[in-house]
């Protein structure tokens, strides 16, 4: 029994020392299909992985949600969501389980959205495991595109597809005429300096892409 205890101890120690990269700094935007080549070209010039070319990916993401009823009738039940991502183009890669917390927009002076994020690799049985836990698939999509790196920053340019049938691999259709562009960094909390670097990098992609802080709550009202 000592081993798990030790693991928990070292985890909490790591948390205390603030070395776990559990904060995601995020900016989002999009680019129309016909200009994506221009954007990719520019990113190739700006980013680190110049020689190897852009890294492509083709992923399937499932978003699970677990509803936990709170005791007491006045409080609404809380929804807890987890994301499972798997590569469709490369077999024998692990699945990725990801928790994304509430996003904090902060005030005007903060250049990016900050949200807590925990990633881990797992095996394909995670889907069954989550289902057994009582999680239900909330929605799913397929993302296909390119990934770039610039220092600690990660830039993804991806097309989002809606699943056609109930099973992946059947006909998929793009949900818009644009590519989703995301600029993100995973860092331990309190490293706000990186956000400034991201703002500067985002400036370099204008006016091709407007990378911005996007408020999910406001989106919910608009659409």
């Amino acid at each position: 029994m000592s081993a798990p205890g030790n693991a928990m101890d070292s985890l909490s120690a790591a948390l205390k020392c603030n070395i776990i990269p559990n904060q995601e700094y995020l900016l989002q935007g999009s680019v129309l299909d016909q200009y994506v080549e221009v954007l990719l070209h520019r990113l190739r010039g700006l980013c680190d992985n110049v020689d190897s070319g852009p890294e492509s990916f083709h992923d399937h993401e499932l978003c699970f949600s677990l509803r936990i009823a709170n005791t007491g009738a006045t409080t609404p039940m809380s929804v807890f969501s987890l994301r499972v991502r798997r590569a469709l183009d490369v077999s024998d890669t692990p699945y990725q389980l990801r928790y994304i917390g509430q996003q904090e927009l902060g005030d005007k002076n903060r250049p990016t959205v900050v949200r807590s994020s925990i990633d881990m690799a797992c095996s394909s049985t995670i889907v069954d495991f989550l289902t057994e836990l009582g999680c239900r698939v909330d929605f799913e999509y397929i993302a296909r595109g390119y990934m770039f790196r610039k220092g600690r920053m990660k830039i993804t340019v991806s097309k989002i597809f809606k699943m056609g049938g109930n099973k992946p691999g059947e006909t998929v259709e793009p949900i818009s005429q644009s590519y989703l562009v995301e600029l993100s960094v995973l860092a331990p909390s309190g490293q706000d300096a990186i956000a400034e670097d991201m703002r500067i990098f985002a400036e370099q992609l204008r006016p091709l892409v407007q990378l911005e802080k996007i408020d999910y709550k406001r989106l919910g009202n608009i659409m």
């Binding site: 935007g29 993302a143 996007i214 989106l219």
Partner: peptide, 16 residues
């Protein structure tokens, strides 16, 4: 080069 409506659509789709 980009459309705000598309950005919102994509972000809302992936996020929510």
């Amino acid at each position: 080069n980009s459309s705000v409506a598309d950005t919102h659509l994509l972000v809302a789709a992936v996020g929510m």
